[in-house]
C-alpha cells in the first residue's frame, strides 16, 4: 500500500487535490456569485432581490441550479448536434485548469508553473472557440451573429490585454504568478497598479470585454440578439455557459489582483493572505457587477473602436513607458 503511494509523485497528488478543491470552489463560487449578483442588482435597483427561498433568499441559486438540471435538453432542428453540445463543455472544461496556477495564498497553489501566466492566457482563449461553436452549431442566425461578434471582440481585446500583461512581466521579469506576487509589497502603494495605472485601467476594461460582461456583453446582447450565442440552449447547456461566465469573472479578477493589486499580499500576518486575496478578487467582481447594472451597452462598432483606436495604442505606450522608465 505504502509502495503504491510512494510511486505516485507528490506533485501529482497535489495537483489532484488542487483540482478537486478547484471544482468545489467553482461550483460554490457560481452559487454565491449569482446570489451576490442578484442582491447587488436588487440593491442598485432599490428592490429586495431574492428573499423567498431560505433565510434572505440564500438558497435561491441552489434551487435555480436544480431547476436548470431538471430541464429537458434539446438541440435545434438542422443544427450540428456534435458542435452544439461540444460548445458548453468546451466553455467549461478549461476552467479548472485556469485555477491550477493561481496562488491564492503563500504556497497555496495547486501547481506553481513557471509559465503560469501563459497557461492561463492560453486556456482562457478557448472560451472564444466555445462561443463560436455554440453560434454555429445552433443553426440560428441570432446565435451566429453573437458568435461572430464574440470572435471579433475577443480578437480585438486580447491584444491590449496581452500588451498590459507583457508590461507587467517586463517589470517583474518572470511569468510565474507567485513570483509576480512576491515582487510586490504588502501595502497598496507597493503594488503594480500605482507603477502603471494605465495598464491597470486597460486591463480592467479588457477583462470586462473578455468575459462578455456589460457594458461589453455584445455576444449575448439581450435586446439585440435575443440571447446571442446561447439562444438555443436549455437546461444545463445554458447552465454551463452561465457557470463559465461567473468563473471567468473570478479568473480575470484573480489575474488582475495578482498582476496589479499585490495578489495575496496585504498588511498583517501572512496567514491572512487568503483573506486578502479573496477580498480583492470579490471587490473587483462586485465592481464588474456594479458596472453591469449601471451602464447601457455600447454599440458594436464603438466597442471595436475603443479597442483599436484607444486601448491598443495606449497599451503600447504603456509598454514603452514601462520599458523606459521602470527598467532604466
Amino acid at each position: 500500500m505504502m509502495n503504491i503511494l510512494e510511486l505516485i509523485p507528490a506533485e501529482l497528488i497535489r495537483i489532484l487535490i488542487g483540482l478537486v478543491a478547484i471544482l468545489v470552489f467553482i461550483a460554490l463560487n457560481a452559487l454565491i456569485l449569482v446570489y451576490v449578483e442578484r442582491k447587488v442588482a436588487g440593491f442598485i435597483q432599490r428592490r429586495p432581490g431574492p428573499y423567498e427561498v431560505g433565510p434572505w433568499g440564500i438558497l435561491q441559486t441552489l434551487v435555480d441550479a436544480v431547476k436548470l438540471m431538471g430541464k429537458q435538453l434539446f438541440s435545434p432542428t438542422g443544427g450540428d448536434r456534435l458542435l452544439f453540445w461540444a460548445a458548453p463543455l468546451l466553455a467549461f472544461a478549461p476552467l479548472p485548469l485556469l485555477f491550477l496556477s493561481i496562488p491564492v495564498g503563500k504556497n497555496l497553489v495547486a501547481y506553481d508553473a513557471n509559465l503560469g501566466l501563459i497557461l492561463i492566457l492560453a486556456f482562457s482563449g478557448l472560451n472564444v472557440l466555445a462561443l463560436c461553436l455554440a453560434g454555429w452549431g445552433s443553426y440560428n442566425k441570432w446565435s451566429l451573429l453573437g458568435a461572430v461578434r464574440s470572435v471579433s471582440q475577443a480578437v480585438a481585446y486580447e491584444i491590449p490585454l496581452l500588451l498590459t500583461v507583457l508590461a507587467v512581466t517586463l517589470m517583474t521579469g518572470t511569468l510565474q504568478l507567485s513570483a509576480i506576487v512576491e515582487s510586490q509589497g504588502a501595502w497598496p502603494w507597493q503594488w503594480n497598479w500605482l507603477v502603471q495605472p494605465a495598464g491597470f485601467v486597460i486591463f480592467v476594461i479588457c477583462a470586462l470585454a473578455e468575459t462578455n460582461r456589460a457594458p461589453f456583453d455584445l455576444p449575448e446582447a439581450e435586446s439585440e440578439l435575443t440571447a446571442g450565442f446561447h439562444t438555443e440552449y436549455s437546461g444545463m447547456g445554458f447552465g454551463l455557459f452561465f457557470l463559465a461566465e461567473y468563473t471567468a469573472m473570478v479568473v480575470v479578477s484573480s489575474m488582475c489582483t495578482i498582476l496589479f493589486l499585490g495578489g495575496w499580499k496585504g498588511p498583517g500576518p501572512e496567514i491572512l493572505g487568503v483573506v486578502w486575496f479573496f477580498a480583492k478578487v470579490y471587490a473587483l467582481v462586485i465592481l464588474m457587477m456594479w458596472m453591469r447594472w449601471t451602464f447601457p451597452r455600447v454599440r458594436f462598432d464603438q466597442l471595436l473602436n475603443i479597442s483599436w483606436r484607444w486601448l491598443i495604442p495606449l497599451s503600447l505606450f504603456n509598454l514603452l513607458y514601462v520599458a523606459l522608465v521602470v527598467k532604466i
Binding site: 435597483q45 457594458p215 456583453d217 446582447a221 449601471t294 451602464f295
Partner: peptide
C-alpha cells in the same frame, strides 16, 4: 434604456 442595455432605469 432596457433596449440600450441599461437594466436599472426601468426599475426606477
Amino acid at each position: 434604456l432596457l433596449d440600450l442595455g441599461a437594466f436599472t432605469p426601468i426599475m426606477y
